[in-house]
Amino acid sequence: MSAITSTLEAYQQQLRSNRLGLWLFFISEAFLFGGLLAARFYLWGNSRPDLDQALGLTITAVLLISSFFMNRAETAIAHDDRKTFLESLLVTAILGVIFLIGVVGFEWSGHIKPWHGAYGAVLYGMTGMHALHVLSGIIFILIVWNNGRKGHYSGERHWGVEACAIYWHYVDLVWVFFYPALYLIGTVVH
């Protein structure tokens, strides 16, 4: 969704810049999430808190499946299939909301609280920063969905969809690193 360009050639020029810019932003964000991971290993070392494994596995699966629907949405609009595009976007957003409920509603109401030493600080710091990104991703999806519903985007011009999709996959990828760091690596001390 570039507003400043009129010809397709100019659009594609801007598109290449947009893509590069978005990836640079991801590199930047990688240092944020990398810093959190570093804090986890620095503070937790080879131990980890006793978290609900079933819950962790479930929300991870939900988030990974959501990326499939995000990809389906993007492929659909690239083929001008608006119906599949809108449906898949909604499914992605719903799965994202389920993930958020899993983290904020269930994980955060467990026995570990933010003020419980380094366990609490890192657990809430990592899941909180990631949840914030998931939330912004859901808002992004809903904006794109709303514009798509009004007839915006086409097979040739759908930068807004593309950016939203890559962002969603990126946030998903971050969780692929966060999940084992929080739930799997290290031993539980009782």
Partner: peptide
Amino acid sequence: LGMGFFDPSLTNEAIILGSTPG
């Protein structure tokens, strides 16, 4: 919020959970 990233002390609750210190 009391998130003790840099706080080397531990509360009793945190010790019971087996938490490492900040």
